[in-house]
Write a protein that binds this DNA or RNA. Structure first.
Lengths: 336, 336
DNA sequence: GACACTAACTAAAACGTTTTCGCAAACGAC
DNA sequence: GTCGTTTGCGAAAACGTTTTAGTTAGTGTC
């Protein structure tokens, strides 16, 4: 590999001058600078990031911590899209992205230690059990951190606005005349709590008495459980006119249960999801859902993280809420 | 950050001794070694990867090049799963994974230059236009490279065995009595060619005359075009008894077209996909498909890449074929 | 007691940068 | 001509490791 020394020799100058010429310092003559840049290019010179990092303590490398229990990691459409957007934004600003090793590491390092070891300048954390000691160590550490869909005191977070998303969805449903709305919600998390609270809130706004038998639970993306729960809902003496699923993917289970009983969507029962992944748009009938703005979430996370890194003094820990958008599909029927 | 120098001072030895003690060299006494290791741990010492890399030229960092035209990158189930498996395997062997920056980089570096700059020791390439000059430069370079689903002379590749996969699928279909089999294949690529050749081959084995109007084209994962093509197939005077889609996801379009005509799967027409992603298992009826062994593909890619890095002399450029597995769903009917 | 040998440790160079400081030359002002 | 000031460049230290080539002390052999 050709180094600055080689370029310096070729140009008959010192390495200091080469460094300054290439990095745009002012105290090097215009013609010399051109000559140095040209020969560097000609010789195929590439800066050595390790050497640079050793001096400057900057690696331009961001970490992404993303644990996938049960393989639902990168396969998770919602998070995959966020990561994709995060990546594009960060790369445009000159940063690379590396995964934080979350397998059991050989030397038994914690997340935090691994980040330090790898020289990551900031970490985005998503889709993880935030309450393990390891995660807490990282969140509380001195490293710049942005969390997705989870709020921690003194740290910046970017989250989908589930309160507003669920509100819009519910107001839409109620507006269409639905009064018997069932909600199969996901397992406890801040996301789930926000949606659930909004669900009850709008019911209350519309003067609708919530019915316990209409509120059920199934893990996110669990089609089987959602199918089972839907079955029970449909077998109720007074069955709901509309069923809200934990997310789009699990809605597949819901649809199966409806079809298994010979009922039709949306004529006999309305079905809605949450997420707005591609799948929801290609189902028949097209699924009504709340499209979460993964592009903005990823982009804002990257922007905030980089801001923390580059302007640590002047960057506040912000709680950013990204609104979603109601997607009116054909899986919901207007009542009377 | 505490460095070797600090540990050395604390223990009253030289940094050289600390380095050797920590790296398991033989010429350091047992008690000293224990003492050094213990104080290093106590002081929270972490090796500085940049400094180490500067000397050893090893970064333990692998690159993954994965371009997603039209956002279908990380969202692509098949590739996401491969990456996931690649990641797990590589991490277990002490490597980290970073994305090769494929946005337009600020300094206008090519893939190859970026890999060198970032100090990546090897690259896995997937889901990309392999014939751009940039990709070619990387593939032909001196860096260890493994390609997924694409074969290049002198380089190692890991690919799904599409020849065998399609053969098994076709023999299954023919075995069930299907003679009028349509194939909506993806756009030209070695994957597509392998499947198509196998398709024709089995037809020939069974003495079935291939019919041009049964062979059509739609981009992978393009539900709309698959829907259109399916429509045309179904409107044929002599419509096929079975339709093979480019992949599982696009099969959704096929299913829509079938349902739109009031036909039933599999009673009126059989539908099959290719990939075996989660979606195929939760559709109603469960989709018959060829499950590609993404776990093995990712794992083998990592193993081969690391082998190239660690034993460059003794590692052959191998073409690895990973067999898939026929998933018998309920979307195919036995004829007469 | 001389010799070779081994074990345990250290000094110092090297890796490729960045950056501080200093120096010389050129320049302008008076 | 003298004195600052500016411009352009270089020497050298520093970053935190690894590794080579010692050095020293101890051990065993004859």
């Amino acid at each position: 590999m050709v180094s600055m020394k080689d370029v310096a020799k070729e140009c008959g100058v010192s390495v200091a001058t080469v460094s300054k010429a290439l990095n745009g310092y002012s105290d090097v003559g215009e013609e010399k600078r051109r000559e140095i840049k040209e020969t560097a290019r000609r010789m195929g010179y590439l800066p050595n990031l390790s050497a640079r990092a050793l001096k400057t303590k900057r690696t331009y490398n961001l970490g992404i911590l993303f644990v996938d229990e049960a393989q639902s990691g990168l396969t998770h459409d919602y998070f995959s899209n966020i990561i994709e957007s995060f990546k594009v934004t960060a790369e445009a600003k000159g940063y690379d992205i590396t995964f934080v090793n979350c397998s059991v590491p050989k030397h038994g390092r914690s997340y935090y230690e691994h980040c330090r070891y790898r020289g990551l300048e900031g970490i985005v954390i998503a889709c993880i059990d935030f309450y393990t000691p390891e995660a807490q160590e990282l969140i509380r550490s001195d490293l710049p951190v942005v969390t997705i869909d989870y709020v921690f005191d003194g740290r910046t977070s970017v989250a989908s606005d589930n309160v507003r998303g669920m509100r819009e969805l519910m107001e839409y449903l109620c507006g269409l005349g639905h009064r018997k709305i069932a909600y199969i919600h996901g397992f406890d998390s801040s996301t789930t709590r926000d949606r659930l609270t909004s669900f009850y809130r709008v019911l209350s706004d519309y003067g609708i008495e919530p019915r316990d038998e209409y509120v059920r639970q199934a893990a996110y993306r669990d089609t089987e459980e959602t199918e089972r729960q839907t079955g029970e809902l449909l077998d109720l003496p007074d069955r709901p006119s509309c069923i809200i699923c934990p997310d789009d993917f699990s809605a597949l289970g819901c649809i199966r249960a409806v079809q298994a009983r010979g009922l039709r969507i949306p004529d006999d029962v309305s079905v809605v999801g949450y997420d707005g992944i591609t799948l929801s748009q290609v189902l028949e009938p097209r699924l009504t859902t709340v499209r979460q703005d993964t592009r903005t979430i990823g982009r804002r996370a990257a922007e905030e993280l980089i801001s923390q890194i580059e302007n640590p003094r002047t960057t506040f820990a912000e709680k950013i809420l990204v609104p979603g958008e109601l997607e009116r599909g054909e899986s919901v029927r207007k009542l009377n």
